[in-house]
Design a binder for these strands. Structure first.
Lengths: 195, 195
DNA sequence: ACGGGTTCTTACTCGTGAGTAACGTTACGG
DNA sequence: CCGTAACGTTACTCACGAGTAAGAACCCGT
């Protein structure tokens, strides 16, 4: 016994725990400042295990981004109500988005850092999810009578507005979600004329 | 002669050149990945000069952020037309903002990274500028009849929308500025009722 | 024309953190 | 019930980058 043999846990169970630890560390200090030693310690495991399962620092980062991005995107896709009115559909999407942020502060912070950052080898991961959200929003605006030549700009502006509201929310947790949702919905009203 | 004595340049002239070089490097790879050696090379100078003038990596970063932030803020403050209508005032502010971004892509990228990042020791620098812009926008919305209980949320959403549009613009440089400005102004219309 | 402050260099130190080697230990499938 | 694959560890290597010492060349004022 080389000392301190941890409880043995199968890979399928350990991996998500490692990603949880990575989330906390990445969220706290950002990708670059996060060390594999810190993640290992947070996960209660030794560093070579991380390398066994994820190969590299970038590997674990990508795995984490993929999981978080999938979660957010699925929530938004599931929330859409294709039959509804524009305000209904927007409120549903915004609600799903803020739901993710509210339940997953750390995850939001990591995704947020990556959206703006310039890590080329990795940006695609988040950019893909982001453009899927963007496409969903554009589609909704178009279907609900938005000016086709302006929809793209509005979609970008609205996603940015949502992201910024999410950041603000983290600093003012007592703000009711409805305020955030209503703000977005009102602004989107400028994009598509009420019918 | 220890070899390769560069052209001698007084400090008051060399410092801004160093900041220009730092801007390029920070913009390219981000703060953490930027090395002092890279900045020195970009500036055509040796590393100890950077330390002579700025003390540390954080020092040169702060000096740069301060310069860029001051530039952006001054443009926006100067552009406001306190007598005008809401759309006029918003268009003026947005125009000044996009003017900065358009003339200073690299600078925008650096500021942008810092807005979202979690570098506590340094965040205040950009946060200060950002909150000044936020205050200006809130003031305009309030003076022009915005609902006081919602102005804060709108101001955050609008700044986020503007930032996101700026990012989009960098990737689609052929988008006319008017489209960006109009989008923001239209959205802001939801915040304050037309009179 | 020379002293001293400023500009500038080369050539280091030294910590930190990614990634690896080499090796125990558990448990489960045959 | 035992061999072997999966789980897990300690203890390294090695590169890279922040920061520093020590001193050389320049140039201005007196």
């Amino acid at each position: 016994m080389t000392r301190a043999t941890r409880k043995r846990v199968p890979r399928a169970e350990r991996e998500p725990l490692m990603l949880d630890a990575a989330e906390r560390v990445f969220s706290d200090v950002g990708f670059h400042a996060a060390s594999m030693d810190a993640i290992a310690a947070e996960a209660g495991i030794s560093k070579p295990m991380l390398y066994n399962y994820f190969g590299s620092k970038q590997g674990i980062y990508l795995a984490y981004l993929s999981r978080a991005g999938r979660d957010l995107l699925n929530r938004m896709l599931a929330a859409d109500v294709p039959g509804g009115t524009l305000p209904e559909r927007l409120a549903a999407g915004a609600g799903a988005f803020f739901g993710f942020v509210g339940e997953n502060h750390d995850g939001w912070r990591v995704l947020r850092e990556e959206m703006v950052g310039q890590r080329e080898e990795v940006g695609g991961q988040v950019a893909g999810m982001r453009s899927a959200i963007h496409a969903l929003l554009s589609e909704v605006l178009l279907e609900e009578g938005g000016d086709p030549s302006r929809v793209d700009a509005y979609a970008h502006a609205l996603t940015g507005a949502g992201e910024s509201l999410a950041d603000w929310w983290l600093e003012h947790p007592d703000t009711p979600v409805e305020v955030l949702v209503d703000t977005l919905v009102d602004m989107a009203g400028a994009a598509a004329p009420p019918r």
